[in-house]
């Protein structure tokens, strides 16, 4: 039963990883950009929430109403003012610039909040649990997982059912021809990054409620998100959710074997899948 429990908990954890990954997957899909600062932006969201919920006395979950648009705006500005200048054939400039942003965000958080671990307090809901037969499932992990499913469904809807999604797909296909349609590439890219950071805001709040965080934890969040994207297959959002679940299960099962193996087990499963299925389990994009 312990093993079943580990798998259930891992599946729910996978929802969080899918949230880490969805924003990454989105901007790669639209503009082939890999944002090395993605993990640090997740952590930044958690800190922004910390400040806002402390200042206004809001539950961190409620403060999402403010954090999501705030991070979206930050994403739009970051893309328009900095990252758009690096977009082109050469992958080096965007990579190195986002790497620089990562170091800046990390150290700015260190200056602003110190290295002490922080946690977001969501109240009684954190400890609430519901029994499913012999297994008890926390309400919070359940909320995270359901949110992940909803977020991915929403992104899917935006991508395939709205004018913005049409613009994303057209720009992804042929940037120049999309421009001929009257689409301003710089704006489309800005919107993609805004959407990515809106998702990041949700991920950051859930991260902060689930575990304590400090300015240095962004790197591993980026890696978890990245692993979920690659396991699931590039360009497939539902695949990304599956990738997150696989990673989550690998980690909880690994931790069950030996506490020191939790993260390691996740990485090893990722490398294994890379060795056997280099394009991921459900690839859609070349």
């Amino acid at each position: 039963m312990d093993w079943v429990n580990a798998i259930v908990q891992g599946t729910l954890l996978g929802g969080l990883y899918a949230l880490f990954a969805a924003g990454l997957s989105l901007i790669f899909g639209v503009m082939r950009l890999v944002n090395i600062a993605h993990g640090d932006l997740i952590v930044l969201s958690a800190y922004v929430t910390l400040t806002i919920s402390a200042a206004l006395g809001l539950n961190p979950l409620l403060s999402l109403v403010l954090v999501v648009p705030l991070m979206a705006l930050l994403g739009y500005l970051m893309q328009r003012l900095i990252l758009n200048r690096t977009m082109g054939e050469d992958i080096l400039p965007p990579l190195l610039v986002t790497f620089g942003l990562s170091v800046i965000i990390q150290n700015a958080l260190l200056v602003g909040y110190s290295a002490d671990p922080q946690k977001l307090n969501a109240g009684a809901i954190e400890t609430a649990a519901v029994p499913f037969g012999p297994i008890t499932v926390g309400v919070m992990p359940l909320i995270v997982f359901v949110t992940a499913v909803v977020v991915i469904a929403a992104l899917q809807w935006i991508f395939y059912r709205t004018a913005l999604g049409r613009a994303f797909r057209a720009t992804s296909d042929r940037q120049d021809i999309a421009q001929l349609m009257g689409l301003n590439r710089a704006h489309v890219f800005g919107m993609a990054m805004a959407l990515s950071l809106a998702v990041t805001a949700v991920a950051g709040v859930f991260l902060g409620i689930r575990t304590s965080f400090d300015p240095a934890v962004g790197g591993s969040r980026l890696i978890f998100g990245f692993e979920a994207v690659i396991i699931g297959g590039l360009g497939n959002l539902w695949g990304t959710l599956c990738g997150g679940v696989i990673l989550g299960i690998a980690q909880t099962v690994g931790a069950k074997i030996h506490p020191g193996y939790q993260i390691l087990a996740g990485h090893l499963v990722f490398l294994l899948i890379l060795a056997v299925r280099p394009r991921g389990l459900f690839p859609r994009m070349d």
Binding site: I177, M181, N184
Partner: peptide, 24 residues
């Protein structure tokens, strides 16, 4: 001007090789 600004003025191009959007 950028291509999107020119498109807004009312100049349209049917490009060589058609170049439709494959995902649309």
């Amino acid at each position: 001007l950028r291509a999107d600004q020119i498109a807004a003025l009312g100049i349209a191009l049917v490009p060589e090789g058609r170049l439709l959007f494959a995902s649309l």
